[in-house]
Amino acid sequence: MASEAYITLTDVVFSRSGRRIFDGVTLEIPRGKTTAIMGPSGTGKTTLLRLIGGQLKPDSGTIMVAGENVPKLRRKALYTLREKMGMLFQSGALFTDLSAFENVAFPLRVHTSLPEDMIRDIVLMKLEAVGLRGARDLMPSELSGGMTRRVALARSIALDPELIMYDEPFAGQDPIAMGVLVKLIRDLNSSMGLTSVLVSHDVPESLSICHYACIIADGQIIGEGTPDELRQHPSERVQQFLQGQPDGPVPFNYPAPDAGSDWGLTGGLK
């Protein structure tokens, strides 16, 4: 990899309610680039972001972010580190009792002691960056799904973070909103030099904006590299995922007992 790593995961093992989600994941996310983490639903992509953000602790392994081992950080240091991170939640997670303006102003009010007119200028700049300067007075309930996500994006870049994590930014968006988000993510990365981590299962969109991608399945990384390297990847499972084929090494059917026994056919299905 050309540039230095901003996030390094080494042998991360994580299980929840008896199920092993990650079984020795090792991954480097380069500084200043966009990295896509892809994989079928339920493979723990969001969990990976929560591990990086320190909301969950791994069973073993290290997670270095900006030179600090996240699981070992004390509360105060962790909260200081999080000021350098922005995270865009799948639902947007706007504060429902605050207007769009106040949502974006929230991190500024909490973490800085800027005067009110300066906060106003910054908030309007951030809202302008996502094209919603005019929607500043709307309440979250009055915003459409795409707008909610864009306001949330403005909020997560309010403090000019070094790292921004996108949790399924394209899920459930119409084609126009999706295009807008793709462009926004790309522009933010190139204009602000952010390190971006993108979790998604939308293959074409993700590959079109990322510098580097990896695919997670069954608790492990099954393929990684630049988008071009991935498209040439020899693994059948990687190809199955990228091309969206219903059957292949990753089965379509959830493991089930023999069909014949479920429908009461003694001889089994022929």
């Binding site: 953000g53 909301q55 509360r75 909260y79 200081t80 580190l81 999080r82 000021e83 991170m85 922005g86 995270m87 939640f89 799948q90 639902s91 997670a93 706007l94 504060f95 429902t96 929230f106 991190p107 909490v110 973490h111 949330a152 909020r155 997560s156 403090l159």
Partner: peptide
């Protein structure tokens, strides 16, 4: 449920205190 507490945490604000 709407991840507001989670997002607050990720903004470096402790929901327990806030």
């Amino acid at each position: 449920a709407t991840e507001q507490l989670s997002s607050m945490e990720m903004m470096g604000v402790d929901p327990l205190r806030r």
